[in-house]
Write a protein that binds this DNA or RNA. Structure first.
Lengths: 217, 217
DNA sequence: CCGGATCCCCAGGGATACTG
DNA sequence: CAGTATCCCTGGGGATCCGG
């Protein structure tokens, strides 16, 4: 990208990661770990292959990712965030937290993936009752499933299904994520199609890092 | 900007503020407060006027800035960050902190302004000895001057000159800012042209929010 | 199937001139 | 001062093709 030519750390950040798609590539690598070219392509619906290729080169030059030629049985090149690349996590978290305010807007054609369902609770909520016994919440939205595990004062998430969840939240993405992130309350979420089965009291434990934008009724 | 079309809060953030120059406009409005068109243009060396105009419209539509027609004696339109716009501060701070690692690179042609000298200590350092008496550090780099005021456990900065500073740091931008932000130590800063006059012990009070990138000798 | 490279086209950005 | 208008050019989107 063309440099802004400003001796300012924000501008210099953007010189490196301000290009289109760059931060989303970092998101995928941070969420997925080592990725093949095709894995990245799948995780970035809409990206052109030439762009992905170009960005990967640029990111490697900038020292943010490393490419390694994996031997058989993988027999392909793997892309990984470098130590420096992983320091982008706070940047992605800040952006992600700020962007929550737009998650209420309905845009039916948006792509949606289980990983994006998963990272939000882990990054943007806290267990409000850290001493309470462990609990498991199953999220299901648009055929994508993720599991939220509460316990030991932590909120952990993973893609997939749990065997015996204490609570199942199912519905359109903006209902599930809107509820979990405190943009809407349970009643509001139900009104746009959420089904909550099980211990809905667990929702009180999930405290969003809200910034005052949310909880309309 | 063209939407990424992903239901992910990072992607939705970038849909709004991912365009070129957008975040730097927010930086200026955050640092300067209400601005005229020309003020922004001066604070954003290199921006084309049509782009600035376009971005201001987009930002207004997104609800991040408000334009107000000021009556005489100002008699012009003023741009201000809205309440929502001000919530970008954590995003800018995260980016600015991450970008510090690139401030060591020398790029002599980069533009430089006093405001960019000023915000870095306020955002990225802490008073390591909050109970110590107040102190004033004068920063001077490339003819731009800023004042750092330590006191009451806070680090405050402003553009301009102090009457009787306890310490004066003068030299090329990357020497002054590199030292203040912990990228280099005093010795290293002197080696690239820093002059430190006064109580250099105050530097110990200025604790950078470093992330392990710095302090090469 | 994977990992790209190539080509064409268009939108967005850059520089500058011009106007109320 | 506060933009608008214009022209040019680069970078991104989309499809296709190609070697391993």
């Amino acid at each position: 990208m063309r440099s802004y030519g400003q001796y300012c750390s924000i501008a210099r950040s953007l010189d490196v990661i301000g290009d289109r798609w760059t931060l989303l590539i970092a998101r995928e690598l941070l969420l997925q770990g080592a990725c093949r070219f095709t894995d990245l392509k799948k995780g970035l619906p809409g990206i052109a292959t030439n762009l992905l290729s170009t960005r990967l080169k640029e990111l490697e030059e900038a020292g943010l990712i490393t490419r390694e030629e994996a031997p058989p049985p993988i027999a392909t090149t793997l892309y990984t965030l470098s130590e420096t690349g992983r320091t982008l996590e706070p940047v992605l978290k800040a952006l992600g937290l700020w962007g929550l305010r737009f998650m209420a807007d309905e845009r039916p054609d948006d792509a949606f993936q289980a990983r994006w369902l998963a990272y939000a609770p882990e990054w943007f909520t806290t267990d409000a009752d850290p001493d309470a016994p462990p609990a498991v919440i199953q999220l299901v939205a648009a055929d994508e499933a993720a599991v939220v595990e509460l316990g030991n004062g932590r909120v952990r998430t993973r893609v997939g299904r749990a065997t015996d969840p204490d609570l199942v939240l199912e519905g359109p993405p903006r209902a599930v994520l809107g509820l979990v992130n405190g943009l809407i309350d349970l009643e509001g979420a139900r009104r746009i199609g959420l089904t909550a089965t099980g211990r809905t009291d667990l929702l009180k434990r999930l405290r969003p890092h809200g910034d005052g934008t949310g909880c309309s009724s």
